[in-house]
Design a protein around this nucleic acid. Structure first.
Lengths: 163, 163
DNA sequence: TCTTGATAGTTGCAAAATCAACCGTTACGA
DNA sequence: TCGTAACGGTTGATTTTGCAACTATCAAGA
């Protein structure tokens, strides 16, 4: 059978698998505790970490499609975890900012995240962790500067024919 | 703002981002050429690489939920890329096998995958690639032997309350 | 042989992701 | 200052996903 292509070694395959393995476990935690979706957690994290930012910026940072961001923001707004602040110079954009309530939740979630990170680091071991991190850094640099636009994700890079 | 939690360094975050960056680009290629979904490509790849196997086995290898596998298999069957072969000893299981047509497509896709892999390797550089691979290996080992069941993905590990 | 429980795989339904089209706004060249 | 194109963000429709419940089969013991 098999030619000389090794599926088990194929990078996209491995990365997806790894990402799923790692984030599913964490997702289970915040889902259980706060009933929030992944986009919501991501948006919250971005805002909590960076402070006030726009929806577009959130999308760029977290590699989420703008509709995902839009709905996540709406959900967080309904929970009263964030508020929208209009821009005086440009009425299209809105700046987003966590409320006290949102910040409180963010801190709790961030704590959970840190704990999880420690758990992972422990499982991985110092050297494994370091290699993974370096490898990821290399990849990020390569992909972003590599060939195309740095912000990405409005268009998934190569978009051709079809549908 | 930000406490001492560094979102940009959070492993699940980075991994997801990296996985998306890397596989979206490749997905665009086979989507454009064959109009196939990711589960379909994965199932095809598993079958092409390993030869005849059951749906459950595909799920185990590619970390896909069994319903995903089921639907992907159906789609591939409709394209006449695979056939089902019944097991004489156990009528519950079915062995899956690529047709000549399926094999042909697989070879083409595998070629594309290899090319892409080379491109990635080139972008990443030898050392970056090696580190990433080692890191991923460490992570796979850690996650799978780590705490829970090795096959995973029928149950995403921790399943608690709720809906 | 019957019962109980596991296993392989499928399907219905509800939640989530994607896509395209859209609205209001701004930027900018003719 | 108009007109066109681009931008930020939202919405509705369609597609995919994930979960639960289901069918059919097998296994093993009473």
């Amino acid at each position: 059978m098999s030619g000389d292509f090794d599926l088990g070694a194929f990078l996209p395959y491995r990365l997806n698998r790894a990402a799923e393995l790692v984030s599913l476990r964490f997702a289970a935690q915040y889902k259980a505790k706060y009933r929030m979706t992944r986009p919501e957690w991501r948006a919250l994290a971005a805002l909590g970490f960076h402070g006030r930012m726009t929806a577009t910026e959130i999308g760029a940072h977290s590699t989420m499609h703008k509709t995902k961001v839009s709905r996540a923001v709406k959900a967080l707004e309904i929970r009263r975890w964030l508020r929208r602040i209009e821009d005086k110079n440009d009425r299209r954009t809105e700046h987003l900012e966590l409320t006290a309530l949102g910040l409180h939740s963010y801190r709790d979630l961030a704590k959970m995240a840190q704990d999880y990170e420690e758990e992972l680091a422990c499982l991985l071991g110092a050297s494994g962790l370091k290699q993974l991190e370096r490898g990821l850094t290399a990849l990020e640099d390569a992909m972003l500067s590599g060939t195309e636009d740095p912000n990405s994700q409005s268009k998934p890079i190569a978009k051709h024919s079809e549908r």
